[in-house]
Every structure is written in structure tokens, then in C-alpha cells.
């Protein structure tokens, strides 16, 4: 292995870990909704990208600076999250998880179509911050905008963990995911908890969508499906229902993706990411962390 190839690998690994935090956010969203409702919301990735597109109105239409634009993305995706809950989950019968699953697939396609039509199928520029800064470590240089993406994602995860572990809403949410029947008897309205979970994960997804846009510099209308797939891979590798699992799996998938990119090129990259998922499904189907929900 020659020296420059090795440097490329390390460079790819570093970039991948930093960008992987956005995958981790998306994975957390999938995993959290699954943990609370024991249902998959396949529209989650699309809702996240949808949030980023909503914020384009502020950026391109109103000329807002980057940070408020990101905030709009978070709020927009939170609202979309509630709409997804209302349309696909609130009224579908509990005993038929497939109904909600199919409804959320419909929602995924719907959001995707709206994005393609509204953007005329063209990529749009997306703002980033600190994009001229960089840190140089010997032969490796780390982009400032990626550091910002990393920090934003880590802060969002921190806020989420604080919500889940330190507030009564979060503790009630975990109570519902562990013992829904007992939670109802403790006066907790599961409908409220489900709705708040969709809004909170929606906000998280909006941050992720904005950060994906910020890291790449453009928003592509073709993002919704790949982001959904990456998010699901992260959630499954981490163990559905496990938040620490999703965080670590997000960083892993980000890093692996870039390493495969360096070694095999862009056209083959996703094949190997899928293989990674395959390996996990065969050897460790419960994911990195066996989640509470997979134990029964």
C-alpha cells in the first residue's frame, strides 16, 4: 500500500466520521419512533430532506443567513413529522402494523414527488458556515464546514438525550416504549407521547437534512430515498430501538462509505455499504446493541 493511498484512506475515514453524524441523527429518528411505537416510519428520511427544502424558502426567497435557515429546516421537519403522524399513524389500527408501514411508504413517495416538482428536479445551492476554515494535521486537512456539521449533530444528540433522560416527558416516552399498558394506567396518554416523538424526531431530522445540505453545498431532489436507505441501515446495524447503537452505527457507516469510496470509487460505494448491512443481518441480526424492544 503506497503512502498517498494510505493518506487518502485516513482522510476519507476522518471526513466520513464527521459526516456520519448526520446519518446517526437519521438513524436515531428511525430507531426512536420504532422504540416507542414498535412501527417503522419509512417517511422519516423524506421528511428530514423536506425540512431542508422548506428552509430553502428562507434562504433563497428571503435571503436569510445560514444559521436561521438551519433553524427553519428543523422547525419545518418537526411540522412535517406531525403531519406524517397524523396522516399515517394516528388512525391506523394498532393491531395492523403493516397499515401504518404502507401509509408511511406512500408518504415517502408523496414528499419525494413534492420535492421533485417544486425544485423542477434541479439541485439547489445550500448554505454552510465555516466553509473557508480548515484544520491541517500533517497531510490530513479537515474542512471547517464538516466540523460545524459534526458539532451541530453532536449538540442535537446531546439535547435529545437530555430530553429523554432528564425530563419527565422523556422518561414518560421511555416508559411507553417499555410497558405501554402500564403507562396508560399511569395516566400517560400514548397518543400524546407518540405525537411528541414524531415532532421531536422530526426536528432532529430537520437538523440532519440541513447538515447534509451544508456539508454537500447543494440540496439534490434525489436525496430522499438514499437518505432513507442510509438511515434504515444505520438503525438496523445499531439495533432497532437502541439510540447508542444508532450513534455508533452512523459513524461507522459514514466512515465505511468514505473508505469504500477511496478504495473502489463512487460507483461501487453503496454496494459495499449494503454488504456491510448484509454481514450484520447474518452475523448479528439484533444489531450492535440488543435493544430493549427486541428482547421480547
Amino acid at each position: 500500500m503506497d503512502y498517498f493511498f494510505f493518506i487518502d484512506l485516513v482522510q476519507g475515514f476522518a471526513d466520513g466520521v464527521l459526516f456520519g453524524t448526520t446519518y446517526a441523527l437519521i438513524g436515531i429518528g428511525f430507531t426512536l419512533i420504532f422504540g416507542v411505537m414498535h412501527k417503522l416510519n419509512l417517511a422519516y428520511g423524506a421528511a428530514s430532506i423536506g425540512g431542508a427544502y422548506v428552509s430553502l424558502i428562507a434562504f433563497l426567497g428571503l435571503g436569510w443567513p445560514p444559521i436561521p435557515t438551519f433553524a427553519i429546516s428543523a422547525v419545518g421537519a418537526g411540522v412535517i413529522g406531525y403531519v406524517v403522524y397524523f396522516c399515517c399513524f394516528k388512525f391506523t389500527p394498532v393491531r395492523h402494523p403493516l397499515a401504518a408501514l404502507m401509509a408511511s411508504v406512500g408518504m415517502l413517495l408523496f414528499i419525494d414527488e413534492v420535492i421533485v416538482h417544486e425544485s423542477d428536479g434541479m439541485p439547489q445551492p445550500y448554505p454552510s458556515v465555516m466553509d473557508h476554515a480548515e484544520i491541517t494535521l500533517g497531510e490530513i486537512w479537515i474542512r471547517g464546514d464538516l466540523i460545524f456539521v459534526f458539532l451541530m449533530s453532536v449538540v442535537s444528540m446531546g439535547v435529545l438525550l437530555w430530553l429523554l433522560y432528564r425530563t419527565r416527558l422523556g422518561v414518560a416516552t421511555r416508559a411507553v416504549s417499555q410497558e405501554a399498558t402500564a403507562a396508560r394506567l399511569c395516566g400517560i396518554n400514548p397518543d400524546r407521547i407518540n405525537a411528541s416523538t414524531f415532532v421531536i424526531t422530526g426536528v432532529l431530522g430537520g437538523v440532519a437534512g440541513a447538515m447534509i445540505g451544508a456539508a454537500v453545498g447543494v440540496l439534490s431532489p434525489l436525496l430522499a430515498v438514499p437518505v432513507t436507505v442510509k438511515g434504515l441501515i444505520v438503525a438496523v446495524i445499531g439495533g432497532l430501538g437502541s439510540i447508542p447503537g444508532a450513534i455508533i452505527a452512523g459513524l461507522m457507516v459514514g466512515a465505511a462509505e468514505n473508505i469504500f469510496l477511496v478504495m473502489r470509487g463512487i460507483t461501487e460505494r453503496d454496494i459495499y455499504v449494503m454488504l456491510l448491512l448484509f454481514v450484520f443481518l447474518v452475523l448479528r441480526p439484533g444489531g450492535l446493541f440488543r435493544s430493549a424492544s427486541s428482547q421480547h
Binding site: E179, A182, R184, L185, C186, G187
Partner: peptide, 21 residues
Amino acid sequence: HRRLAGGIARTFQNIRLFENL
């Protein structure tokens, strides 16, 4: 969940705690 507000609470034959809290 509204019955609790009315004042009805219960325990279960097979204990149902929030085990990870």
C-alpha cells in the same frame, strides 16, 4: 389513561414495571 385522573390505579398479577427506569 383518563381513568387514572378519575382516581383508579392498579397493580398487575405479573409485575409490569418500567424496568429500564
